[in-house]
Amino acid sequence: MSVRILGIAGSLREGSFNGRLLTAASYELPRGMELHRWGGLGLVPPFDEDAEDGPEPGGVAELRRAIAEAAGLLIATPEYNGSIPGQLKNALDWASRPYGEGVLNGKPVAVVGASNGVHGAAWAQEELRKVLKIAGAEVLDGTLPVGRVARQLDEDDRLLDHDLRRNMRAHLHGLRDHIRLRAYA
């Protein structure tokens, strides 16, 4: 049985480093795991509690459906001003509602991040982990910061550094194992 995870890149930019990092992750997936990318971040309108009782905006419905259908999530975040991008936070706010019953509740999530800086979006990853935990997700321990990312990816978006590839594989194995344990609980 294949384990289907959803990959979300926290950047709206076409060809973003974090979108490319999801591609790099796809090369390191454990056998029996599939990564499906969701690219609708720009379609999610600003979160508005007044809109919760009305018809669900299209981008929100698509986001919730994609998360609900996935066994787990892999989120790759850039770092903007020391934190996560506003559009990613906005999408997570929608996915967390209604509080305690949102599609993130109980969902296994692994966090990675890339930047051209030395620290590889480390602060953003910690912020993202905090937001996800408060939203009720089961966030895996640890992060995977990929600093100076432009030097870390080849023309096919494979990670060049052996240690980074090994760490990505370990991160993905951890997500798969968490999903399997949760299925048997």
Rank of each mutant, 00 (worst) to 15 (best):
T23D: 13
G102D: 01
G40D: 14
G86Q: 08
L92G: 03
G32R: 02
F47R: 02
G42W: 08
L92E: 10
P46A: 11
T23R: 15
E56K: 13
L12S: 05
S26F: 09
R64E: 10
K107F: 05
A70N: 10
G42N: 12
A66V: 05
R97M: 10
L35K: 06
I84A: 01
G19P: 01
W94F: 13
L21K: 12
P98H: 01
Q87F: 03
W94H: 06
E49C: 00
A9Y: 05
D93G: 03
L29E: 00
L41G: 08
L41M: 13
N90L: 05
K107S: 02
R97L: 05
P45K: 00
Y99W: 15
G58T: 12
L12K: 03
W38S: 02
I84H: 00
H36D: 14
A25C: 14
R37H: 08
G39I: 08
Q87R: 08
G32D: 06
G72I: 11
P85T: 15
E28L: 14
Y80L: 04
L92A: 02
A70R: 10
P55T: 13
G19Y: 01
W38F: 15
E14V: 15
D93S: 07
Y99C: 03
I67K: 00
A61D: 12
L12C: 08
L22R: 09
G39C: 07
L22H: 11
I67N: 09
S83C: 08
W94M: 07
A71R: 13
N18W: 09
R31L: 09
M33I: 13
L74F: 10
G10P: 07
P98E: 04
G59Y: 14
P85I: 01
E52I: 14
G19A: 10
A24M: 10
Q87L: 12
V103F: 04
H36W: 13
R65N: 07
D53W: 14
A70M: 12
A9C: 01
A76Y: 06
L74Y: 11
L74M: 11
A61T: 03
R31Q: 15
F47C: 03
G72A: 08
S11R: 04
W94Y: 12
G106D: 04
G10V: 14
L22E: 00
G106S: 08
L88E: 00
A24Y: 02
I75A: 04
E28Q: 15
A95H: 07
S11E: 09
M33R: 02
L29C: 09
F47N: 05
Y80H: 15
N90P: 12
L22K: 11
L73E: 12
A70I: 13
A76K: 01
L41Y: 07
L12N: 08
V60F: 03
V60Y: 07
R31H: 15
P85K: 00
E28R: 15
P57N: 05
E101C: 02
L88S: 00
E62L: 15
D50Y: 11
G40C: 03
A71F: 00
L92W: 03
R65W: 13
R31S: 13
A66M: 04
G42K: 10
P45D: 08
G59H: 10
G32P: 12
G39W: 06
L92F: 01
E79A: 01
R65G: 02
S83Q: 10
A95T: 12
G32W: 14
G100E: 14
P45C: 10
